[in-house]
Simulated assay, not measured.
Amino acid sequence: MTKEEYMGVQVSPLSYEEITQQLKQRVAQGEQSTIIAVNPEKIMKSQTDETLRDLINGSTFQIPDGVGVLLASRLKGGDINSRVTGVDMMDRLLQLSADEGYRVFFYGAKEEVVTKAIENIQQKYPAIQVAGYENGYAQDQEALIQKIQDSNADVMFVALGSPKQELWIRENKERLPVKVFQGVGGSFDVFAGHVKRAPAPFRKVGMEWFYRLATDPKRFKRQLALPKFLWRVITKK
C-alpha cells in the first residue's frame, strides 16, 4: 500500500470499502492489523511528540479522519478522495464482524457507557458476536489480558483516548488473539447515544469540525491546528 505523508506522518489513501476488504484478507491470513485516526491536530502534535508519530506510522491503517488531511491531499495532488472517520470506520467494522462472524471485544469508557453502547450495537446488528467487554477503569491489567485471551476475540475496540489507547494496543497486541484493533476515542459515547454527532449535511461537506466548534466554543484552541497545518502543507517545498 502506497501511503501519503504529511510532515513526517503517514496517511492511508483508502476508502472504507478498500480497508474492509484488506482487513478480511488479513484476518483470513492470520495477520494482525491496527487502525488509527489521523487529523491535523495529531499531525501538529506529532511534530514535538516522537512517540505519537511512531504510533501513527507504526499502524497498519492511518485513516484520514480530518477534513484538513483531505484538503492537504487535494492541494498536493494526492489520492485521498474522502474522509474516513473513526466512528464510521468502527461502524463498518461492526457490520463486517456481524457479516463474517468475527467475535468483538469492547474495552474502555465508563461502565454505563460501554454497556449501553453494546446494547445499541446489538439492536442494530443482531448477528454481532460480543466476545466480552471491560470498562476503562480496570486496575488489574493481567486479569484483563487473560479475559481477552479467553474471549477468543477477532476484533477489539479500545476507547481510552489517544494516544493512551494506541499505546495500550502496541504494548499488548502480541499477547492477544485479536486480529483487528482500532482505537476509537469517544466513539462508545456516540454508540451509547450520550454524544450526538453533527447533522448529516455538516458531515457530508466535511464541516463536522465547524458544528462541534459552534456547539462547544472551548474547542477553539484545538481547532487552530487546522489552519496551522494547512499553512505548513502549502509552504513546505
Rank of each mutant, 00 (worst) to 15 (best):
F210V: 11
R83H: 03
L94M: 13
A117M: 12
W209E: 10
W209G: 01
E50S: 10
N120R: 14
A37H: 01
L213D: 05
G206P: 03
D140C: 09
I118N: 07
Q139R: 15
I169W: 08
Q165R: 08
D88M: 05
V180F: 05
V180C: 04
F220Y: 15
A153F: 09
W168P: 03
V104H: 07
D79W: 03
H194A: 14
D65I: 05
M1D: 07
G77Q: 10
M7C: 08
E18A: 15
M156G: 02
G77R: 09
D150I: 02
A192H: 00
L94P: 00
S46T: 09
G108F: 08
P13Q: 12
W231D: 01
L96S: 02
I148A: 03
L71F: 11
K218G: 00
Y6C: 03
F188Q: 06
R170S: 12
Q22E: 15
F106R: 07
F210A: 15
G108V: 02
Y16K: 08
Y125I: 04
G66H: 09
N57R: 02
L14I: 07
K116R: 14
Q182M: 15
Q10M: 14
N135I: 11
L144E: 05
Q22F: 01
Q22W: 01
W168D: 01
N135A: 12
Y125Q: 08
V233T: 03
P40F: 13
F106H: 12
S151P: 10
L230N: 00
E18Y: 03
D150V: 06
A198C: 04
E41R: 06
E134R: 15
G30F: 05
G30A: 05
M90R: 04
G30W: 06
T115I: 11
S46Y: 06
R219Y: 07
Q139P: 00
K110Q: 14
F181R: 09
Q47Y: 07
Q146F: 07
A159H: 06
Q139W: 06
N120C: 12
K236H: 13
L93A: 04
T51R: 13
D140M: 11
V190I: 15
K124N: 10
S46A: 15
D140Y: 10
L144M: 14
K45V: 02
Q10V: 02
Q122A: 11
S187N: 01
T215D: 08
R53W: 00
Q149G: 12
Q165N: 04
L230H: 05
T48P: 00
D150N: 13
T20M: 15
G193A: 02
R170W: 04
E208S: 02
L14W: 04
I19D: 14
R197E: 02
D99A: 08
K196D: 13
G30P: 00
G136D: 04
F61N: 05
L176A: 00
V27Q: 14
Y16G: 02
T34H: 11
A143N: 08
V114R: 09
L144G: 07
G186Y: 06
M44I: 14
E50R: 11
